[in-house]
Amino acid sequence: MQSFSGRLFVITLGALLLPSHAQAHAALITLGPVEAIEIHAGYDTGEAMRGAQIVVYAPDNPAQPWLTGTADDSGRFVFVPDGTPGRWAVQAREAGHGAMSYFIVEGGETTALLPAPAQYDPLQRLVMLASIVWGAIGTALYFRRPRQRERA
C-alpha cells in the first residue's frame, strides 16, 4: 500500500507539470530500511542447506503457507513479515531433512522463539537446523521518495 500511494502521487504530479510528457513512464525508486527476517538453514555439520525449500506460516492462518521460496547456495533466505501479531513459523527442507523455527511478533517487536543457537549439539550429525536472525538489515524494498531517471 505504501508503494502504491507513492507511485500514484508521482504520476499525478507529472500530469500537472509536464504536459508534453503526460504519458509518463518514469521509473521511480525510493529506498528505506525495513525490519526483515533472515534465515540461515543448514546442518549441524556446518554444511549449508543449498536451495532449501522455505515455507513461512503467518499466525492468522497457521496451516496454510503465507510465503514460499528457495534459499540461496548458502542456505540464506530473507523476507519481511507483514506485522501480523502472534507466532510465525518457518520451515526449511532439503534432501529429506527439515526443521521448523518460530518467532513472535508482538507490539512491533520481533522475538525469536526457537531455536536458540547455543543449544545445538555438535555431536548430533545429520540433524538439520534453521536459525533466524532478525532486525533492520537495510533491505530496501519500498518506494518512498521519487527520483526521475528517465522520461518517455
Binding site: L113, L114, P115, A116, L129
Partner: peptide, 9 residues
C-alpha cells in the same frame, strides 16, 4: 509451549 526443540533435547 514453547515449541519443543529436538536439537536441545
Amino acid at each position: 509451549e514453547p515449541p519443543y526443540d529436538a536439537e536441545a533435547g
